[in-house]
Each structure stands twice: as structure tokens, then as C-alpha cells.
Amino acid sequence: MMNNTSAHAVKERPVTTLDQKPSRAEGRKDPWSQLLEKVGKHQDRQAYHALFEHFGPQIKYYAMANGMSSHAEELVQEVFVSIWRRSCLYDWRKAAASTWIFTIARNQRIDMLRKMKRTSAEIQVETEDLWQIPGDNEDEPVTSLHRLMSERRVRDSLRHLPEEQITVIAKVYMEQKSHQMVADELDIPLGTVKSRVRLALNKLKVILQDQNV
């Protein structure tokens, strides 16, 4: 089901081209966040179209990588309709546009799969009660520097990660494989997968303080 796309997800990862994309600067709005804000404040369709051109292919690929090829354009539609509806709630201080859009794509994917499997009467817990979009919680204080910097930091440090670590993370995020499934697929022990992820997260500095219980 996902053979072709998953091979791509692993091999053709142009890590170096990350530099060319607009990167989120500390305390400053990146271009995508500015565009998203225009959509939210003025229903700016030109800005909306620019977001579509940039993120549409990413979302389509995201759908294909996790085995939803026949629903890929449908997912793009759902995500963009949701972006339009929610854009008035978007706050660049709470998340970069790309992070915000990633969480919407993730939630729409989950929602679409849930609705394919079940009738709506069977769904007692809404997807968004389970997976939150950043900034949805209004009580959340604005903002920590950490939050603003995180995407840039991730982007910068990703370049220095060994390929084997990136491969594992890509399978978790893009192909919706659990750590166990990644271990099975790569035919390596679960412990190895976990240690690769931990090493990567340490380098990505996304762990503030990991407290294992």
C-alpha cells in the first residue's frame, strides 16, 4: 500500500534544501505566518492561494506517504477549508504557520480515517478533543521564547543528524508508523529505534527535561 511513497520518504530527503525555505526567525514573523495572518484578518485570497501553492503539495505528499493516496487531494481540500475557517484564531506568537498547518493536517488525516471506519454516532470523542491545535487554548499565556524558536532550532539541528535518525523520525511522522512498526520494517530491535529517536531528540533539543517515571 505504501511501498513506493515510503521509499521516497526515506531516500529523497533533501535536507540541505531546507536552507532555501523561509525560516522562522526569532521573534519575527516568517513569510508564511504573515500570509496566514492576512487570511485570518482580511480573508485575503491571494495570501490564501500562496499558502495553497506552498503547503498544498506538502499535504498531498503527507497523505500519500501514509497510504492515503486515493484520498490525497481530498485531504488537501479538507485541510485548506479548515485553515480558512480557523485562520481568524491564528496567532503567530503561539505557533509558526507551518507548525499550525501541520497540526491541522494531522488532525484532518486522523478525522478522515476515523470517519471512514465509523459512523458519526459511534464517535463520542471529537478528534480535536484528543489532538489539540496550538493556540486553541485561550488560557494559554503568550508566549515563551522557546516556543518561537523551536521550529528554527529544529530546522537548524536537523542538518546535523545522521541519516538513520532522520529516517526513523520520518517514518514516525510521515508514515504514521509506531516505533514498534519502524523496528519491524527496518528489521532492527525496538530498543535501537528508541535510542535513535532519543539521540535525535537530544540533538534537536526538543527535550527540555525528560523525566522518565
Partner: peptide, 26 residues
């Protein structure tokens, strides 16, 4: 804030797609 950072990681992963195109009709 840990999840925020991980969501950013997701965004950066999603960004590294190979070339696919979405039609204007979409």
C-alpha cells in the same frame, strides 16, 4: 511546550516532501 517543539519537528518533516503537484482545480 515539549509538544509544541515536536509539532515543529512534524512541520519540518512535512516540508521535506519530494515533488508532487496539486492541481489548480483543487
Amino acid at each position: 511546550s515539549r509538544v509544541d517543539a515536536l509539532d515543529s519537528l512534524g512541520a519540518v518533516m512535512m516540508e521535506q516532501q519530494s515533488q508532487v503537484s496539486v492541481s489548480e482545480s483543487t
